[in-house]
Design a protein around this nucleic acid. Sequence first.
RNA 1: GGCGGCGUAGCCAAGGGGACCAAGGCAGCGGUCUGCAAAACCGCAAUUCGUGAGUUCGAAUCUCACCGUCGCCUCCA
Length: 469
Amino acid sequence: MSLKVYNTLTRTKEEFLPLEEGEVGMYVCGVTAYDECHLGHARAYVAFDVIRRYLEYKGYQVNHIQNFTDVDDKIIARARKMREKSSEKDLKELCKEVAEKYTMEYFEHMDKLTVKRATQYPRATEHIGEMIKLTEGLIRKGYGYQVDGDVFFEIGKFKDYGKLSQRKLEEMRAGVRVEMDERKRSPLDFALWKRSKEDEPSWDSPWGRGRPGWHIECSAMSMKYLGESFDIHAGGQDLIFPHHENEIAQSEGYTGKPFVRYWLHNGFVTINREKMSKSLGNFFTLREIFEKYDSRVVRLFFLSTHYRKPIDFSDDKLAKAKAGLERIENCLREVERKELREPAARTYRGSIYRTRFEEAMDDDFNTAAALGAIFDLVSRVNSCLEKGDLSSVSKAAPELRDFCQVLGLSLESGQEVRLEEDLVKLIKEREKARQKKDWARADAIRTKLREEGIILEDRPQGATWRRAE
RNA sequence: GGCGGCGUAGCCAAGGGGACCAAGGCAGCGGUCUGCAAAACCGCAAUUCGUGAGUUCGAAUCUCACCGUCGCCUCCA
């Protein structure tokens, strides 16, 4: 079976063939560290995490690079606000603090969502030299031009400009909404290097003190860590234009080589069918979301829709994802009770479930269809448990864990958690009451425990409990 | 104005010319189990895939038109 991926560059699904056999270079556009992460970030990074995990499942060694933008207008704006309150610190110091704070928060939230750590996380400010070198090269090759301390990229010089977003230059000019900077040769020319104001973070360059433009960092860092041509470049659909279009122009203009083989873009999170965004005021931060929902539920919610499609968020949908997650967990918990826990070795291949799972994932990482296979496998395991066919269970259960692991669904085993002393006493008391057929007492205890978040299930061997969550 | 996506049961969602009188989940209904539950199991539930026309032996799947909806064209995952 061959893996097919949808390439934004060609607008088709293509067979995935990396440059080096057995290895994949993958660059994911990271966050600008100026504010808390929201649901949209979570969706993107969960999507690319699953892609990375599946590539690893297929046997590839994945070199996953993800940047942090730690110098930018918005970070500076944030730092300026902070300075209004505590004026003793200088702006550069505050910019660093802002970036550091939100970088750490990013990790905190992504860990909750079980997003694997990238191989490396390069920061823009640590690669100023590389960016200056790229900019110099672009000027030398006639793509860049300097105007009093600013350097712009002249898009008219790059013949393929617009190939990713599939736009023609003439069309774009017609729709330009940006105010014209008189010093630019075309309104669509973009900054490679920006002259900076006195108090802003700045670095020495051949064009004076300044800081890099936004797009250049991704060209510089991706090529530094993955080479001038590499396999996968990923990000949100909103980055297609102008960010990724500009990256192609810079990188290919500089190297004369194809920059990226496969461009992958995830769809947006919407709230009530509208794009979630700060300007609309309808966004949810991950901090808010995790106060209400288990992060595993959030992850399953994302996986229930193909990563390129928009996904609409609502409490109701999260509640449904939660019910689905419980179905999988109840199944695995039951397997453990039967002491059938086995290492999730991939020894049992070729089942119809694995075929379906792989076919789904091979088809541009169709996690929604893959979940179909997972739920069918859950039904199969439950059914075998019911019939007492434990040899089938011991074959199917490791497979189920294996699939969940590929999707990054870390499931609770349910057994390692201890119950508080007084609650254990109550359960024992209830057992006695049940033996005496004192149903009123037994039910009262069950209700009380339910209020404590403990769900009791009576079984032939006695009652078992699990946390509600 | 230009470009692109989407519209499948009550809700979510996969499928994208014949194996589909359409996966899977949630909710619902009937049954089994249970003191009653919970969990689980068994079964039921779209004769139909936004609307209309067309291509085809055959269409949810292709073409055209229309309606609805969302996004990009400015920072954005």
